[in-house]
Write a protein that binds this DNA or RNA. Structure first.
Lengths: 124, 124, 124, 124
DNA sequence: GTGGTCTAGACCACA
DNA sequence: GTGGTCTAGACCACT
């Protein structure tokens, strides 16, 4: 389910975080569902255990998952009701938008892009 | 004219690049205008010369500026007509936007953000 | 009577220990009273037998209970007269309190918390 | 300045976090002060670089510090105005207090302890 | 089996 | 020089 791009400059653990959040947001993992174990994930993704561990650790810090030592990692109750996550995403988006503006993209072009992205699956 | 945010996680040399491109984009620097010298810039911005050098070097590589050894650095004719630059920025923006959508940002929230970013100086 | 919080980071066997000590402390179990058998407890709490076994084993080691092989587990005479246990708890509490103070909690906030914790059943 | 107890069961990175927060809270490190580099700290404390890195990473996550790659780690503006830190400490204190109650400490004993802890340097 | 902690050491980007 | 990422592998506590 999770696909890692080893050539991307985005850190591997960030890619894992993103994709797991996506799976949760899509409802493929429900609250209190157990995620695959760290060891299983690391084998599937061909990554070191510590890299996966870091991803899950940060997801836990963000309130998306919780871990019970000796038992496993689980999806939190209000996994994505979290404000922090949205703020984070908004901040990153703003940075990208400012950069785009500096490089000559017009407001209209951005709006067209926005429409395109939000077309596929209506989200609001 | 150029403002560096020392608290930002964006590399200093990237900030310089962004800001110079923005100034060009806004027409404050016209094609064939001379930019301040590296030494002047590094003093103004209180940055290491190497950092400024790297920024200008990459701008030249991108075709935004050209340098005449012994004379200085100048703005290229087609400084921002370069399609590749815009495409790159657009691609990154799209990724950030998709991620933001996945994390629950609504289309409206993105539009509000767009308006905010493009508020300063109308651009389109 | 015993409630296990599966979401808590406190080990399950520690939770069992705590709760049994609390019941004894509150006088609901008198010295020489028999505790429910390990099997009964593990079914009630939906826990692995080994987890319950460990909890009772440690209680016995602490002198809170004693077991008569083939008969069951019983509350000791001087179950909580044991000074070492209290001292241990007091030391940990002190550490946590100092840390809380260092992080800006006021004396009043701690007192409010104390009142809340000791609210359920008056104890002194 | 920082003292690590290698025999404690508290994780080393937690000890580092605690002590740095303490130094900040005491005003020995002011906002925007630069902390010793990770490598220097790890040599001083005779710890692995990664352990120190983790401590500083979590402090950053908590908003106590911020790091500028290539430059160093610095104390945040409102390092300890942070609500999250207090909530964390309060939660830990509550757990310790419940445990103490279960082990027979009376409300009065806790209050005496509170008074003792908050005696040294008045904090509220 | 599970996750948590720690070490040792490599490589990268940034200033 | 700085911090950031990643790997490999050890040991521990808990279920």
């Amino acid at each position: 389910m999770i696909i890692i791009d080893f050539h991307s400059r985005v850190p591997l653990y960030e890619q894992i975080k993103e994709q797991i959040m996506l799976l949760v947001q899509q409802g493929l993992y429900q609250p209190n569902d157990q995620l695959p174990s760290i060891r299983v994930l690391s084998k599937q993704l061909r990554l070191n255990v510590n890299t996966v561990k870091r991803a899950l650790g940060e997801l836990e810090e963000m309130g998306v998952t919780y871990s019970l030592p000796g038992r496993g990692v689980f999806v939190s109750e209000n996994a994505l009701g979290n404000k922090k996550i949205k703020q984070d995403a908004a901040a990153k988006l703003k940075t990208a938008m400012q950069s785009a503006k500096a490089k000559g993209l017009s407001k209209q072009e951005v709006e067209t892009l926005t429409a395109a992205v939000f077309a596929g699956k209506p989200n609001s």
